[in-house]
Design a protein around this nucleic acid. Sequence first.
DNA 1: ACTTATGCATAAGAAAATTATGTATATATT
DNA 2: AATATATACATAATTTTCTTATGCATAAGT
Lengths: 112, 112
Amino acid sequence: MSNSKLYKGSLNTIILKLLEESDKMYGYEITQKVKEITKGELNITEGALYPALHKLEAEGLLDVEMLKVDNRLRKYYKLTEKGTKETANRLTELEEYIRTMQTIINPKWSIQ
Amino acid sequence: MSNSKLYKGSLNTIILKLLEESDKMYGYEITQKVKEITKGELNITEGALYPALHKLEAEGLLDVEMLKVDNRLRKYYKLTEKGTKETANRLTELEEYIRTMQTIINPKWSIQ
DNA sequence: ACTTATGCATAAGAAAATTATGTATATATT
DNA sequence: AATATATACATAATTTTCTTATGCATAAGT
């Protein structure tokens, strides 16, 4: 996750949201997906991604499944039931954050 | 700045934006203003605010003026010329960040 | 043969916050 | 009069979350 100091704290929410849509994904796939949908604006670094995935797994929000594809091991992650509920919470928080920041950026619009 | 892990990285931009509007403000005033306009949702902690102000001053983005009001010292900050230019950049970055996050949150809207 | 892409992982360091603590004056409450 | 709350600034210790660097391994392109 480079190119900006503003993304701090949102990586976990991004991961959860992508898994909510795609059912199951592996790490490298997540980096490519984010690069694609943000048209290269957001590049998640491995040093940020893998520890984040391990932490979400440790918290019981993700399940892991190893699959060998083309003689290479992929570590697929998917949301647990707890993870699905938590994803909804995190997305609500992110939406609130965005609304709050827009209030600050655009104070004229925020007055009623 | 508590209540959320998402605000990380945006404190400096918030400070700069408020100073752009209010000409000059002191630390405590900033915490109260943010609390007011976000209806209590965002509380900037002193441990985050004061080091941030000192850093912005060290970078030449803020000027300081001490004023005694009601027998209490206030440290007023205002944007330098450099600070005014940088504020515009930071706001643009924040808007881009918000757009990027909305693309991820709302993928349906992002397809063309 | 060499580079780039795919795939996972961790360690060192930096940045930016939280939490806790300290100092001091003013005002409100009991 | 004593106590709590609000105002006002500051810093130290710790935690969280990232960047940068490094390591390993296989596959595919040049």
